[in-house]
Design a protein around this nucleic acid. Structure first.
Lengths: 364, 364
DNA sequence: TTGTATGCGTTATCAA
DNA sequence: TTGATAACGCATACAA
């Protein structure tokens, strides 16, 4: 920060801008500047006016000793940590990545620091991490897809305001949910396929334990019903939101019910797997089968061909969440409306003239 | 803050397992159990034996009040935060994701908590985040691809031991580097293509500012030289490690020098872009052009066809890093050997009989 | 084995 | 405007 670069070159005696003493305290600065600790504190926090002369003396001392206030001590004394606990189910999931980015970027400006942890889809871990947040006295908590039931969340929210993404809860001053309209998204996607002339539309579902996954299935069924197409349980296969599950599900589907002309996958990762399984069998997309995903992961627009999918504005949702939690911390009321999803039509779907052409015996 | 939640549900008196007082202190527990604060502290940390009777009394009080020690106070008093600062260039990058997972999982067992932040490839941010870590008194720091120069890193390492991934530094007790052998990886990949009969092998490079990217270019050139193939600058295009850069580079390449039979991309994301650009032009992979990437992102095995690439064992590297930093904190010596990379041969490369067949005018 | 006293580095309250 | 002084919640050296 105060690196002057004047002695990078060997030869000249090195006078580092980062001094040796790692533990300069506020008190040391006060002594060096000839003022009281309180004055230094005031300057640091801008909590009161001080004489310019003293101000300068203190600032000089801070620069000279490269002093950095101890965040721990500050938090202990003030009761505020300026820290937000962010709980994800899996840090490494491409799906959460954009959320984290949105959260981090919006938190930086108001001066909060996010702490990311992941519970690995394990409800016990989720609890443990939440308690860890509380032990750390975070000022607020953002949950990405909480699995805990609402009453438990409500209990925890007494320690710090909580915002739950992708879920609707009974909103209060300390607990709020930002629901995502999975049902509508899935309905739109299915509707799109129907409009393109598809009638036998398969669905590869997500884990039955996920609320989202269920909503997406409901959306699929709703669109079918609206179009007067009977629901066929044989066209539904179980996936797990992962690529491997998509592969397996598609293989079962092709073996059992090979006449579908379109597949709607509960998420993009599932679609990647399904795509590969079809590729292996020589089934062309979209010539033989149309494919639609859900989430619009960054990679999806680089699939070959680029994937038609339901876009979740994750980055924006992340920003909203960050702003929301800050408002809750500041005791301001917030109004969170459900996030609408939009269908992004790319190149894995095509119009067919019903009845669907029989899928070809293209060479592998 | 002192909301006691005793009347969440109208009607039935709710007896929650999470008690009302959010700020139970160690002292309160001591009083409730009829012992001294130090005894409670000892039980909490297992730092000394206490009478079973007292032990039980304390544990009962802890359970009754749902007491959670204040991490801040504990750290302030002990001088240890049990926290590791992890600096990434971009939290949301699929490339860093696996590293983070490895780090997080290995840190959990020894009782450390990672704090992830990202500097967004900005060197000023990198410095700011590092200073933030120091202000938080983290016990150790892991850097994923540091951009700061070694002397600055050395300066910072006086505050907390630092481990730099993907870079070699002059190792000391407080600063260590875990280099990754990009050169060898790129050399192997190129060599593979040469062995398959390719002679006109294009290369889409990464940002010239990245050490890794340069090493990969060097590996490419080395393999060519070893095979007695002259380096042709016309076959090298500039990318940016992102998909968009891959698309653009491939388009330029095809326009300018359409006779290559293989492309080696500096990373997988670049390869995704290049793949799409070829797809758009009706150039088939691997029938017309062989394609090799670098990194082996999780998605790469689901590309169609699955991408041949150089695998970085990122998850394992993450684990190594976590173990390493813990050892450094404990003042144990560590031995870090460069990580070897391995070529994963999948389906985007194929053997050709030189001279390469002229690339087809397949319909778009 | 247990308790007392002191310190960790700040902020905040209260006088001056 | 400034400076003592008391928290903040815990760990720990020392004494018992």
């Amino acid at each position: 920060m105060t690196h002057d670069g004047s002695n990078d070159k060997p030869g000249a005696p090195k006078v580092s801008d980062v001094p040796a003493a790692p533990n300069v305290t506020l008190e040391a600065i006060a002594r060096a500047a000839g003022v009281s600790p309180s004055t230094v504190s005031r300057i640091l926090n801008g909590s009161a006016r001080v004489l310019p002369a003293k101000q300068q003396a203190v600032e000089a001392a801070i620069a000279r000793f490269n002093y950095r206030p101890n965040v721990l001590a500050r938090s202990l004394a003030s009761g505020r940590t300026e820290t937000i606990g962010v709980l994800t189910q899996a840090v490494s999931s491409p799906f959460y990545a954009e959320w984290l980015r949105g959260i981090e970027e919006s938190l930086y400006e108001p001066g909060f620091t996010p702490i990311f942890v992941s519970s690995r889809w394990n409800i016990d871990d989720e609890k443990a991490r939440l308690e860890q947040f509380i032990a750390r006295r975070v000022d607020g908590i953002i949950l990405l897809h909480a699995q805990l039931d609402e009453s438990t969340l409500t209990d925890y929210s007494r320690y710090a305001p909580m915002l739950v993404l992708g879920r609707s809860v009974h909103n209060s001053a300390t607990l709020a949910g930002l629901p995502i309209d999975n049902m509508q998204g899935a309905r739109d996607a299915t509707h799109h396929l129907i409009e393109q002339g598809h009638r036998e539309i398969a669905f590869i579902a997500g884990p039955a334990s996920h609320e989202d996954a269920i909503e997406r299935l409901v959306g699929y069924r709703t669109a079918l019903e609206e179009a007067g197409i009977g629901f066929d349980a044989d066209l539904v296969e179980q996936g797990d939101y992962l690529e491997t599950g998509g592969v397996a599900a598609m293989e079962r589907l092709m073996a059992r019910h090979p006449s579908f002309s379109a597949v709607f996958c509960a998420n993009d990762q599932t679609a990647y797997g399904a795509r590969l399984a079809m590729f292996r069998r020589g089934v062309r997309v979209p010539d033989d089968v149309s494919l639609v995903g859900f989430d619009d992961l960054p990679t999806s627009s680089y699939m070959t061909p680029p994937l038609t999918t339901v876009r979740q504005p994750t980055y924006e949702i992340g920003r909203l969440a960050a702003q929301g939690i800050v408002q809750m911390i500041r005791k301001q009321s917030i109004a969170l409306s459900p996030i609408p999803l939009t269908l992004v039509t790319r190149e894995t779907t095509r119009r067919i003239t019903p009845p669907p052409v029989k899928r070809g015996d293209t060479p592998t």
